[in-house]
Design a protein around this nucleic acid. Structure first.
Lengths: 234, 234
DNA sequence: CGTGGTTTTGAGCCCGTTCAAGTATCGTGG
DNA sequence: CCACGATACTTGAACGGGCTCAAAACCACG
């Protein structure tokens, strides 16, 4: 009965290479296995809520998570998307500062805060890896900050397509494969600081430019990466 | 000849409590002293440049630093400001991802990347502290992201004043002291994703609302914090 | 005092929003 | 498998917040 459920143990986990757990030596994976709990969330499920007591930390095994913050009047802004290997809901504050929601079915490893602290103490390599990933998230935030502050709508949409496309690797895109986008136009808008309508208009505009083709709304093909890069303003 | 130059040693450094070095035990401060080099930058000096080889890491002893990124056509966006105790220019990339410029005279401790790595290996508490500060910077970035993506000009300006004012502590502000702002209107604009004119207009508008008074352009008094908070949209 | 840069203020315009209508898609139950 | 309702997406027309361009006022420095 091998792998009755996928990813039941850390040794066979497909996300390990990308995740912080990749820094933990093979011989200690058993100990890691006992610290975590594999949890599963349906599409659209809120995983943690802004303001709720921060008890757990999550490392994604499969699926896509969106992180967002809201203003009291309901305006919301998506901070970023997280993919297999990424973690979220980390902090040293009493309460979560962002809400995390599953965009697809999500499998993740949940660690209690205290367990995570113990893991970082026992495995300095794990702490280094987490720090390294924090640098990356910081850099991605800065990338997003200049996008929000200084780019036009069309530049934002082109930048988003390129950035999101990178998830699927060079080859997949260069072979003009469709990339599948689990987020709605409204979510793209909440990510780019725009409205649904503006995102829609600019996607069709990019399609007219022959930079992309839009199949079903959630399947987009990137036709001309150089053109997209040019339009993106970078 | 005590303290001929200010902050010559870690033991007397005013920024130690706030900085990552605060996590290093007193008895090891000598070793820290030998790892760093105290450097001084004039106002308006670029400390590190986006794209240049990332060789050093800086921890601020005194002064204010602005971090920014630019697009190829010159549009620039300020990512954030850094104060005594903060660090900047950290990353694990080959080149710096942001430019850092001194807004005032700045004194900082410079560490080579390899020295910093060794310090983090020798003092796990220091690594934990750096990680903790990264969480804070991440949270601040997220705060800035929702500001840029979803707030109006007036909300942005009010948010900025409140956020910047916090540097000076509750008491100073509640006693209606002037707060001194070393950045120009243009820099506030580059931080908030606006233009100089819009910042200026909204500052005078806040003054008309009796939320603030503007003395000399770089000295602002926060009159009504509750009103500012209300206007800020949070 | 003059000179150069910063800040303020004004007038007009434009990009992205808002409001509205129409169309496509998805999920559900028959 | 199809019909139906709900939701998401697209497209159009008009509005308005923030930008651009321009000029005046202010300040800092020699």
């Amino acid at each position: 009965m091998l792998h009755a459920e996928p990813y039941t143990t850390c040794t066979v986990c497909a996300a390990r290479a990308k995740g912080f757990c990749g820094a933990i030596p093979l011989r200690d994976l058993d100990s890691l296995d006992r610290s975590r709990r594999l949890v599963r969330f349906d599409r659209r499920r809120t995983i943690v809520s802004e303001g709720a007591p921060a008890l757990s930390f999550f490392s994604i095994v499969s699926g896509v998570v969106k992180l967002y913050r809201s203003l009291p009047d309901g305006r919301t802004q998506i901070i970023g998307f997280r993919f297999p290997g990424d973690f979220f809901a980390i902090s040293d504050t009493e309460t979560y500062t962002t809400t995390a929601e599953a965009l697809t079915v999500v499998e993740a490893c949940r660690f209690s805060k205290s367990r995570l602290t113990r893991i970082m103490q026992s495995f300095p390599q794990a702490q280094s890896k987490i720090l390294e990933m924090c640098y990356r998230y910081l850099s991605e935030s800065e990338h997003h900050i200049i996008l929000l502050g200084r780019k036009t709508a069309k530049e934002k949409v082109a930048s988003f397509l390129l950035q999101y496309g990178e998830q699927f690797g060079r080859e997949a895109i260069q072979k003009n494969h469709h990339i599948c986008m689990p987020m709605t136009r409204g979510e793209i808008a909440d990510f780019l600081g725009l409205t649904t309508e503006t995102v829609s208009r600019n996607l069709t505009s990019l399609a007219r430019d022959n930079a992309i083709t839009i199949g079903l709304p959630h399947s987009i093909r990137l036709l001309n990466l150089d053109l997209l890069r040019h339009i993106s303003g970078n």
